[in-house]
Amino acid sequence: MVTHNVPVYAQRGNYAVGLTRGLVESFLMSNGLPIYATGSGYAGDDYIADVRKNRDGRLQLFLKEPGQKNVLVNIGQGTHYTLIEPTPTVYDTDWERRYTTGYTIRKGISYDGLQTLNGQGFTGSITFRATEAYLNYMEACYEKNQNLDTKAQAYWRALRTRAKVDPDFNATIAATQMDKEKKDWGAYSAGQFVSPTLYNIRRERRSELMAEGLRWMDLKRWRAMDQLITTADHFEGFKLWGPMKDWYKPEQLIYGATDDKSVVSDPARSEYLRPLEIRSNALSYTGVKFAMAHYLAPIATEHFQLASDDGTAENSVIYQNPGWSLISGTAPTGL
C-alpha cells in the first residue's frame, strides 16, 4: 500500500504552504462578478469567514476557516488529526504546524480519522480529470480562433454551473478590469495584459486546478512573468493587521527583528501578512523578481559531454537553453 501525509497536512497548515491573497481574490463571486465590480456583494477580507461569503463554490469548499470540523468519521482512531480547524498559527516556528499566509486549503483532505494513523493516509490521487480537458479545449479554441465555439462555451458553462457560479461568463468578461487583476500573473503575457476573455479562461483554470501542480507550467507557457524582470512583486496572505490581529496575543506577533525572533511581517509594510518579508536580511525582503532564463531549465553538463565526440561540453551537438552557461553551478544571465 502506498501511503502519504496529505490528509494530515490538509488538516493543519498545509506543511507551511499557504494560499496567497492574489489567488483568493481572483475567485469570482457566486453571481459571476469579480470582487471589485459594482453589485458583486463582496463582504471584504477583515475575516476569513467574510472572504468565503457568496463566493465561487470552489473557494467556499476549499478555503479553510477557523472552527470547521476536519474529522467526521472514526474520531479518536487516528493519531495525527486536527479535529477542529484552529485560528491560523502564523507565529508557529514548527513547519508542520505553521500557517505561512493565514490562508490554507482543504483540497485533498480526508474526513476519516484513520487517514491520519501514524501520520499517514492512503487516499487516492486523481491523475486524469475531465475538467482539465474542458479547460484545455477552451483555451486552445480561443487562442486559435480568437472566439469560442459552441463546444467551448458549453464546457465553460458546465464548469461554472458545477462550481455554483452564474454560468453567464460574458457578464464576467464585461465586468473585468485588467488593471485590477494585476495581482494575478496569469493576467499577463510578455509583460502586457491579455484580453479579458483570455484572462477569464485562465482564471477559470486557476480556480479549478489550484493545488494540483499545474500552475508553474501554465505561467511559463503563458510567458506570464516578464513584468517581474523590472518590477518586484510581493507575496501576501490574509489581512493579519486588521481585526484578525485580535485573534492573537501581542507576544505572538513579533516583527521588526532581523534575527529569528520575528515571525510575522511589519504592519508598516502592509496590512496583509507578507511571509517572505518577515526579516530585513532576507533576500526576498524587497519583493520577488524574475529572470527570463527561468522560463527554461538549464541542461545538465553531463548531457553535453555525452553528446560530444570528445567528451567536452564545448563540442557537444546540443546547445544550452538561453541565459544559462555550459559551466555547472553558474547563475543565469540577465536575459
Rank of each mutant, 00 (worst) to 15 (best):
F235E: 13
R12P: 04
N170E: 14
H303Q: 15
A190P: 07
L23H: 06
D179M: 12
R97L: 12
A293I: 11
D94P: 14
Y199W: 09
D226R: 07
F290I: 07
L83E: 10
G124E: 10
Y15W: 06
P34W: 04
G13R: 01
T330W: 13
A158T: 15
R106D: 08
R97A: 11
G287Q: 08
A187I: 10
F122A: 12
S308N: 09
E204Q: 15
I201H: 06
T286H: 14
P275C: 05
W95P: 14
M178K: 08
T89C: 10
L335V: 15
Q177A: 10
D112A: 01
Y134A: 03
L63R: 01
Y103G: 01
E314T: 13
Y285Q: 04
E65V: 01
S207K: 13
L159V: 12
F122I: 11
G287P: 07
L214K: 13
N70R: 00
P267F: 02
G76I: 09
D246K: 10
R221G: 02
M244A: 05
T258R: 11
L83R: 10
V17M: 05
Q146V: 11
T301S: 13
D45I: 06
T93W: 06
R157A: 13
M292H: 13
N5K: 09
I318R: 06
Y15V: 07
V263T: 07
Q60S: 11
L273W: 05
K249A: 12
H4S: 03
Q177W: 05
T197S: 06
V90D: 01
K107N: 05
I75A: 08
P196I: 06
L59T: 04
V71L: 05
D309Y: 12
I278W: 02
L276H: 11
A331L: 15
I75P: 04
P86W: 00
K53D: 02
T333C: 09
K69H: 02
H234G: 04
M244T: 08
G242H: 03
S270V: 09
E143P: 11
W156I: 14
D166A: 10
G78P: 15
N31W: 00
A140G: 12
L253H: 02
Q227A: 04
L63A: 00
L59H: 03
R106P: 08
A49E: 00
G124D: 09
K144S: 11
L273A: 03
Q11M: 07
D179F: 11
A211I: 15
R215G: 04
L306R: 15
R223V: 14
V71H: 01
D246N: 13
P7V: 06
N145E: 10
L114Q: 05
T127P: 01
R202M: 08
E132N: 12
G256C: 00
T176P: 03
V263Q: 02
L253E: 02
S189V: 09
G287M: 08
L114I: 07
T100P: 09
Y91I: 08
G18T: 03
N74I: 08
V73T: 15
G329Y: 08
D166W: 00
A232L: 04
R58H: 07
R98C: 10
D149Q: 07
R157C: 12
E96N: 15
V90P: 01
L59G: 00
D259C: 04
R203W: 10
V165I: 13
G44Q: 01
K249M: 09
N54G: 09
K144G: 08
G213C: 11
A313C: 05
D309K: 14
G113N: 01
A190K: 15
D50H: 00
R223Q: 11
I48R: 00
T312I: 08
